[in-house]
Simulated assay, not measured.
Amino acid sequence: MTTPSIGTVFTPAHDPTRLPAAARAAESAGLDEFWLWEDCFSHGGLTTAAVALASTSRIRVGLGLMPAPLRNVALTAMEVASLHRLFPGRFLPGVGHGVQRWMEQVGSRAASPMTLLDEYHSTLRALLAGEEVTVDGRFVRLDAVRLQYPVPGAPLMVGGEGPKTLRFAASHADGTLLSAALTDDRLRAACAEVRGAASTDDHPIVAPRLVAVGPGAADRLRAEASRWGFESADEIAVAGDAGEVAAKFARLGEMGITSVLAHPTDDEPDLEGWTAVIGEAAAQLR
């Protein structure tokens, strides 16, 4: 059995002014990770990651994920390297395709998302490693670019849910970030896809799970599941006290997930109190 690391997600449904307090609450609760989403057209992922890192001293801060079509790869390398240097060992960035509808809205949708991701990921890794990079790809083009302050060995994750993307993440990235709205069956299938393609047995797999606690938790989950297009929340969420949350997270660990991220509902009324319950669940798993 894998005992997963436990973290929370600060989603774009919550005003960014609440971010510093939420990050500190996660750290105070003894959690391992604090993750941010970069959804168009909401929080800026690298901006909020910098705030979360500066607001805390220990907890790892993940960014899942930066859409490859949206950011020039050299700029991404500059920003990611800066955060790695300023907060060594605490930043967990991820890249991926982005939501194609949003990429279409901003005029950045790629004709071949997998080709773009391959070119982008390999170029970004080379830049972070300190190499001088010249590339003339289908989507990525650089001419003798080298970072002044590289970070060799910096972790770089890839997120997605399709089989091709999962196999790419497993074989090329330092970890795989799964989508939030996956049923247990789809999570098992995704873990099997990743494990089958991973080059190491300890390849990290990060998966969010919708969680509600306290009075009205089941009602909030039903409403959230409906917004996500599900008739029931049973297969994508957990409601209850810290013990019930811990039991569910342990079962996710048995699937091979190495980091479970508690995902609040959009209308969570007490984010700090919710975080404290997640911390209690994490303590029961240790």
Rank of each mutant, 00 (worst) to 15 (best):
T2Y: 08
T3F: 11
I6D: 12
G7I: 00
P12H: 02
P16Y: 09
L19E: 09
A22H: 10
A29I: 00
E33K: 02
E33I: 00
F34Y: 12
L36C: 14
W37M: 06
F41N: 04
F41K: 02
S42K: 05
L46R: 04
V51L: 12
S55V: 06
V61E: 08
P69T: 04
N72H: 07
V73Y: 08
A77V: 12
V80L: 12
S82M: 04
H84D: 04
L86F: 07
F87L: 06
R90I: 08
L92S: 05
P93S: 03
H97F: 10
V99T: 06
Q100N: 02
W102R: 00
Q105W: 11
Q105P: 01
T115A: 11
T115K: 12
L117T: 01
E119Y: 02
E119R: 01
Y120H: 13
T123F: 11
L124D: 06
A129T: 04
V140N: 07
L142W: 14
V145A: 08
Y149G: 02
P150R: 15
G153S: 08
E161N: 12
E161D: 06
G162I: 02
K164I: 01
T165V: 14
H172I: 01
D174K: 03
L177N: 06
L178F: 00
S179K: 11
A180Y: 05
A180V: 03
D184Y: 04
D185C: 04
R188M: 09
R188G: 10
V194C: 13
R195Q: 15
G196K: 11
D201K: 09
D202V: 05
D202F: 12
D202H: 12
H203D: 12
P208V: 02
V211N: 12
A212T: 02
P215W: 14
L221I: 09
A223I: 03
E224Y: 09
W228A: 07
S232D: 03
V238R: 15
G243S: 15
V260W: 11
L261R: 02
P264W: 12
T265I: 04
T275E: 05
Q284G: 01
L285G: 07
